[in-house]
Amino acid sequence: MLNNITLGQYYPVDSPVHRLDPRIKIILTLCLIVSVFMIHTLLGYALMLLFVMLISRLSHVPVKVMLRGLKPLRFILILTFLLNLFFTSGETLWSVWIIEITREGLRQAVHYSLRLIFLVLSTSLMTLTTSPIALSDGMELLLSPLKVIHFPAHELAMMMSIALRFIPTLMEETDKIMNAQMARGADFESGNLLNRAKAMIPLLVPLFVSAFRRAGDLAMAMEARCYHGGEHRTRLRVLRIGRNDVIACLIVAALLALIILEGIFVPTLL
């Protein structure tokens, strides 16, 4: 019963943000990343926070879900904060024994941590609201000019899409093989690391054998349906830039402009 798996971070609801052209979303995400690097003041981060909350509202993705993306990074975040806090030289604010906290240290610790947080949040905005298949579509189209230099944009996207198609199938299969080996007394759970790794062989070998067989079958089925690479191929999924895409661009452009202005006119507070 693996019917209810969602892949990656994708949060499957319908919203204006979800419906944006994936190409636009990829480009805008790049813009956001640039913006984050340009922020120098707390005001800038406040603007960014406002933007993230706006998108959360528009996309029906709760902030809580967005913050989940930060969880795997918590150790790096803490490390970044502490390293900057303790190892930046400058005007001493507070010191005990050999530990010394400087004004610059505090400033950098906050700055770099916030930068990291917003970098993750910016990309999460995209991955949460774009299905993996739409993402690979968008990537293919954005990269397609590179075909001139023989960059395999179509092939990469096709591989991605086949992988997505077969993940549920292979997961189901893993489940089946595991049960079958357990019926032969296999034990996947106990023992030390080496034993457990060894216990995986009866699972992995059949899984690979099956994956290869499937790959062979699929290649033949694709050929039988006239697949011959990306040339002269038309597409069912056509991406069109719509009004909402233009609006999204304008919003991000405004954000970028504000951040640039803030960098020029607001004296560095941090």
């Binding site: 299969e173 079958a180 019926a183 032969r184 070998v205």
Partner: peptide
């Protein structure tokens, strides 16, 4: 003893 459907897919040795 339980023999699953298509049990040949569990062979590995």
């Amino acid at each position: 003893g339980l023999v699953f459907q298509y049990p040949e897919y569990q062979l590995f040795e």
